[in-house]
């Protein structure tokens, strides 16, 4: 199954210095506690987020979409499955 959304971003970690800006998991490696708190304060509402399954293998991702219901989720699931 092909991925529904194609990300042209290198998967990185704090080891080799590359950062994946879209992946919460990668972000948590490099952000300090104070920086994370500041970022959290600047975002009072939850936003959509994405996490890679692992930093090595980018064939699976988890998406968290806030403030939506089946209205959007069912068509998104259908389109992604048949992509």
């Amino acid at each position: 199954m092909r991925r529904g959304l194609e990300w042209d971003t290198a998967v990185g970690s704090n080891v080799d210095g590359q950062i994946c800006d879209n992946c919460r998991l990668c972000r948590s490696h490099t952000q300090t506690r104070a920086t994370a708190a500041a970022v959290g304060a600047a975002r009072p509402f939850e936003e959509a987020a994405m996490e890679h399954g692992t930093v090595e293998d980018s064939s699976a991702s988890t998406f968290s979409i806030a403030e939506e219901e089946h209205t959007l989720a069912n068509p998104a699931r259908f389109v992604l499955n048949q992509e």
Binding site: E69, H70, T71, L72, N74, P75, R77, F78
Partner: peptide, 8 residues
């Protein structure tokens, strides 16, 4: 799923 999205 699209038809149901429009209905909702």
């Amino acid at each position: 799923s699209m038809a149901n999205a429009f209905r909702r």
